[in-house]
């Protein structure tokens, strides 16, 4: 550049900032304005399908955090395991998704929910009943592309044209 260091650099910088003053800001205002999160979102809770689960315990073995606790009993008559206790401590869970990928019977999913803050640590433990799918607790499409199709598409910042240039 021939015109380096004649104050041109500073002037150019000033035009860039003043132009931003006239553009739309990129931010959105969270509680009122909500964006759709990813279809594969790994929510802060796990969803468990009681019918499909066989109590094999693969998920608990795979979990790197040891956040899953399963206690099973044998049902001799039906020749299968009964899941007595299935607990996930979401306070320890790092939402890595390995358990969902590992489950051989497609019984474990992520939830599509992200506002799961609690006031006490103990409340973070999800028991059997809190893990079932409900209308509030939607299943996320992580690792299950067919479930992903049912969810609304993600809002992308690349598609939000806020800048006119």
């Amino acid at each position: 550049m021939k015109f380096e260091r004649y104050g041109i650099g500073i002037a150019k910088g000033l035009t860039v900032t003043i132009r931003h003053l006239l553009r739309h800001p990129t931010v959105n205002q969270y509680p009122e304005q909500r964006l759709n999160i990813s279809r594969r979102f790994r929510g802060n809770e796990l969803i468990w399908n009681r019918e499909k689960c066989t109590g094999c315990g693969t998920c608990a073995k795979t979990c790197p955090q040891g956040a899953i606790e399963i206690v099973t009993a044998t049902d001799m008559a039906e020749n299968k395991y009964i899941v007595d206790k299935y607990e996930i401590d979401t306070g320890y869970c790092i939402q890595c998704g390995l358990c969902v990928e590992a489950c051989p019977y497609e019984a474990l999913y992520f939830s599509h929910n992200f506002e799961c803050a609690r006031y006490r640590r103990g409340e973070l433990v999800q028991g059997k009943e809190e893990m079932l799918e409900t209308p509030q607790r939607k299943v996320s499409g992580y690792f299950y592309p067919d479930k992903a199709q049912k969810l609304p598409g993600q809002t992308l910042l690349v598609e939000k044209i806020t800048e006119k240039r």
């Binding site: 594969r40 979102f41 998704g97 390995l98 992520f110 996320s140 993600q154 992308l156 910042l157």
Partner: peptide, 22 residues
Amino acid sequence: FRERERIVDLFEMVSGQRLTYN
């Protein structure tokens, strides 16, 4: 950060998470 946000959006789309993708 605004442009990083655009990339992170894409990562969220593929992996479901925004920081620790795994």
